[in-house]
Amino acid sequence: MNNGNVTLVGAGVGVRFVAILIDGLIFLPVSYLVAAIFGTTISEGFTLEGIGFYITMLLSFAYYIYFEGVRGATIGKLIIGLKVVKLDGTPCDTKAAVVRTVARIIDGLPFAYLLGALSIWVSVNNQRIGDRLAGTIVVRK
């Protein structure tokens, strides 16, 4: 995408998938801790249900909003060398990060971010639905 001064090239599905896997691995101990506090651990692992599920969801949203809105990228994106910027090339802000994060619910449908991946594949700028709604794009640093 050419915004007048800078040409932005959106990152593809593969590299973004690796970043989200890293974020998931980073967040796994947090999920386990919440499950342990609310008594939903079992010998085979843990489940998130009831209040534990909602607390984990809120913590996950806070993670994405903070890291993308304040730092410009989640830890997974930082490791892979990606960042979130607005379409004009300026840094992602908290408002855009909130929109991106809430839209993850839609992008995650029907499972495993399938709708998000499809929207990246058909977008000229490799944007998922959350990017389009927030006016952002994920680019390589």
Rank of each mutant, 00 (worst) to 15 (best):
Met1Phe: 13
Met1His: 14
Asn2Ala: 10
Asn5Trp: 07
Leu8Tyr: 01
Gly10Ala: 01
Ala11Lys: 05
Val13Leu: 05
Val13Pro: 06
Val13Trp: 08
Val13Glu: 00
Gly14Glu: 09
Gly14Asp: 09
Val15Trp: 11
Val15Glu: 10
Arg16Val: 01
Arg16His: 04
Phe17Asn: 05
Val18Pro: 00
Ile20Asn: 12
Ile20Gln: 13
Asp23Val: 02
Ile26Asn: 04
Ile26His: 02
Leu28Arg: 13
Pro29Met: 15
Val30Met: 15
Tyr32Asn: 11
Leu33Cys: 13
Val34Gly: 01
Ala35Pro: 07
Ala35Gln: 03
Ala35Val: 02
Ala36Cys: 09
Ala36Val: 08
Ile37Arg: 01
Phe38Gly: 03
Phe38Ser: 05
Phe38Lys: 04
Gly39Asn: 07
Gly39Gln: 05
Thr41Leu: 02
Thr41Arg: 05
Ile42His: 05
Ser43His: 11
Ser43Val: 12
Gly45Ile: 05
Phe46Val: 00
Thr47Glu: 04
Thr47Ser: 00
Leu48Met: 07
Leu48Glu: 01
Glu49Gly: 10
Gly50Lys: 00
Gly50Gln: 07
Ile51Arg: 12
Gly52Leu: 04
Tyr54Phe: 15
Tyr54Arg: 11
Ile55Glu: 05
Thr56Phe: 14
Met57Asp: 08
Leu58Arg: 04
Leu59Trp: 09
Leu59Asp: 09
Leu59Glu: 10
Ser60Thr: 10
Ser60Asn: 12
Ser60Trp: 10
Phe61Trp: 15
Tyr63Pro: 08
Tyr64Trp: 15
Tyr64Ile: 10
Ile65Asn: 08
Tyr66Val: 13
Tyr66Ile: 13
Phe67Ala: 05
Glu68Cys: 05
Gly69Cys: 13
Gly69Asn: 12
Gly72Asp: 06
Thr74Cys: 03
Lys77Ile: 03
Lys77Met: 07
Leu78Asn: 08
Leu78Gly: 07
Gly81Asp: 08
Leu82Ser: 07
Lys83Gln: 12
Val84Ala: 14
Val85Ile: 06
Val85Trp: 06
Leu87Arg: 13
Leu87Ala: 09
Asp88Gly: 00
Gly89Tyr: 10
Gly89Ala: 05
Thr90Tyr: 11
Thr90Ala: 08
Pro91Phe: 00
Ala96Tyr: 11
Ala96Pro: 11
Ala97Cys: 10
Arg100Phe: 05
Arg100Leu: 07
Val102Ile: 15
Val102Asp: 14
Arg104Leu: 04
Ile105Met: 13
Ile106Arg: 03
Ile106Glu: 03
Gly108Cys: 03
Gly108Asp: 02
Leu109Pro: 07
Leu109Met: 15
Pro110Arg: 04
Phe111Met: 10
Tyr113Thr: 02
Ala117Cys: 15
Ser119Thr: 15
Ile120Lys: 00
Val122Gln: 01
Ser123Gln: 01
Ser123Leu: 03
Asn125Gln: 15
Asn125Ile: 10
Asn125Thr: 12
Asn125Arg: 15
Asn125Leu: 11
Arg128Ala: 02
Arg128Asp: 06
Ile129Ala: 02
Asp131Gln: 09
Asp131Met: 11
Leu133Gly: 07
Ala134Arg: 03
Gly135Val: 04
Gly135Asn: 08
Gly135Cys: 06
Gly135Ala: 07
Thr136Phe: 07
Ile137Met: 02
Val139Asp: 01
Lys141Phe: 12
